[in-house]
């Protein structure tokens, strides 16, 4: 890992703690797709900082190209976090926006995704987009690990630039898999439910 990556995770830990809580699985180096609630721009760094270094080396956050695709942000995303950029706006309608993710999974690497597709303002996640389902059908052997990020919606409200220091735990739940006859809608709702369950009884 680059020294700048350590600097980034260090600053993240100083600002938001990012204390890992392995509630449903151990930090093992199996292929995983971590999926989490999304409320702020530090979510990606927070999850990444909560992973042990050996897992950071094989795990790639997925970030939106329209936000992380240029300038300093691009450097942070692609060089420090080794993120995969996804084209949310689908500038080429024929291209599969999931292609770069699929490529990464084919290499045996793990991903961090935010299935809501955008940042929400509340403590519990909104409806999930179908990307997680498509990845789950194509990579049945990858473990789907629900992750709940606590408090970050308070730390960096939409539009704010500097995060308010806040202690945040990163809760990793029990891995789940797609059932044989499960519909897309049922699966996505079940996956969302797993993240909500990790939230415990927080106020919405």
């Amino acid at each position: 890992m680059r020294p700048s990556s350590f600097l980034l995770t260090g600053v993240a830990k100083l600002l938001v703690g990012a204390f890992p809580r392995w509630m449903g699985c151990a930090p093992e180096a199996t292929q995983r797709i971590y999926f989490a609630n999304h409320t702020s721009h530090i979510d990606t760094v927070a999850i990444w900082a909560a992973l042990p270094i050996r897992l950071r080396n094989i795990t790639h956050p997925v970030a939106a190209k329209d936000y992380w695709g240029g300038g300093v942000r691009r450097y942070i995303a692609t060089k420090m976090l080794r993120a995969v950029l996804i084209d949310r706006s689908r500038s080429d309608p024929n291209a599969n926006p999931l292609a770069p993710l699929i490529e990464m999974l084919q290499l045996g690497e793990s991903l961090i995704i935010f299935p809501e597709g955008t940042r929400g303002a509340s403590a519990v996640p909104g409806p999930f987009k179908s990307g997680l389902y498509h990845l789950a059908t194509q990579f049945p052997s990858a473990q789907l690990v629900p992750v709940y990020l606590e408090n970050l919606h308070r730390s960096l409200p939409k539009g704010a630039i500097l995060p308010i220091p806040m202690t945040c735990t990163v809760r990793f739940g029990a891995p789940m898999a797609l059932s044989a006859d499960e519909t897309k809608e049922a699966f996505l709702e079940r996956a969302r439910g797993e993240v909500v369950r990790l939230a415990g009884n927080v106020k919405a």
């Binding site: 703690g17 303002a121 408090n151 308070r154 409200p157 704010a160 500097l162 308010i164 220091p165 806040m166 202690t167």
Partner: peptide, 27 residues
């Protein structure tokens, strides 16, 4: 002090409209 304030604010319910005074307190 920084870590203590961070804990205090984490447990204290704040609203998004408290953003500015919180920045003032911390930084």
């Amino acid at each position: 002090s920084f870590f203590a304030l961070r804990e205090f604010i984490t447990l204290t319910p704040t609203r998004p409209s408290d953003y500015l005074p919180l920045l003032l307190a911390f930084f």
